[in-house]
Amino acid sequence: MNQETAVRNDRDTTSHLPNNQIKVSARKVQVYYGDTHAIKDVDVDIEDRNVTAFIGPSGCGKSTFLRCINRMNDTIPIARVEGQILIDDEDIYDKRIDPVQLRAKVGMVFQKPNPFPKSIYDNVAYGPKIHGLAKNKSELNDIVEKSLRRAALWNEVKDRLQLPGTGLSGGQQQRLCIARAIATEPEILLMDEPCSALDPIATDQVEELIRELKGNYSVVIVTHSMQQAHRVSQKTAFFHLGNLVEYDDTETIFKNPKDERTESYITGRIG
């Protein structure tokens, strides 16, 4: 019941913001891991050129739901997704959709920095190469430089592009992964707890980066840190035990939550 109100609220708020189009629209999404019902009836609309945060206690399904948006759950044999997720009004679980093409449009940054054990240059250039985004070497160089600049990493690595990406510090590695994700020019960027393995300074850099990316992308970030959600996002969704409990403007969620579970979580009584 609460969830229905949440959705209705959400529709109300979007109507107040006419310049923000809906990029991702999920309806009645169910995810099963074998017999476990991990995500129950999630309805959510994610806006373009905005940061949406998913918060909630561990095991609440926020990462699982995030991985539905670029069909990374396909790689888990026992996972099963039902319901409908529309990106630009196309059902991404349609039979005709190729998940490989989808993932070029929906980039992802993972919890643990996972650069390829290759050079910094090759890490960023890999996506554009396999998608044929660069006609020649100099175009590829441009894409690599642009992506690294946007990931605020260029100045630190421009002299050592041929060194292995795994040799960078944790924060640099994560920004490298972000550069790698944006190099393929996705329209949506999914971030699964991108700062959980980073120290406060690196976290700050990544958050700054997320705020900048907002101008071009629809960013969805899963985070354990409520402060982080508060700092970077415009909309926040609170997940609990596989349900989307509440979804609203970040300010509303943190200042004036409608559901008592949200309030308990925000104030630190559960979670």
Partner: peptide, 15 residues
């Protein structure tokens, strides 16, 4: 080989 490498490759749209 750590699964994170596969995730990373699939995540940037590799088949």
């Amino acid at each position: 080989v750590p699964p994170s490498i596969r995730d990373a490759a699939l995540g940037v749209g590799a088949s």
